[in-house]
Amino acid sequence: MTMSVQAELPDQLARQGQELIKNGWAPDMNTLLTEALRRYLESHPEALAEAFVREDVQWGLHGGD
């Protein structure tokens, strides 16, 4: 199952993606954007973001500096 998404990309980023596709390194923009999103989600898990916020607030309130 897939979902259609409309997004605006900065010119330079879109051109770099198109170049990659043109040169045969990615099949199409759908695949490229899906892979980019998958990688972003893998490196930015929500639980980790929340843990960092909590650590940050503890430092802010009780840090020794």
Partner: peptide, 28 residues
């Protein structure tokens, strides 16, 4: 404020914070 950058930075230093921490720190 970037989660991945924080995670990567922790391999070098444990002293990594963001905007929220700085704002709260202003009270302390």
């Amino acid at each position: 404020d970037d989660t991945a950058a924080k995670l990567a930075a922790q391999a070098i230093s444990t002293r990594v914070h963001g905007t929220l921490g700085l704002v709260v720190r202003a009270l302390r």
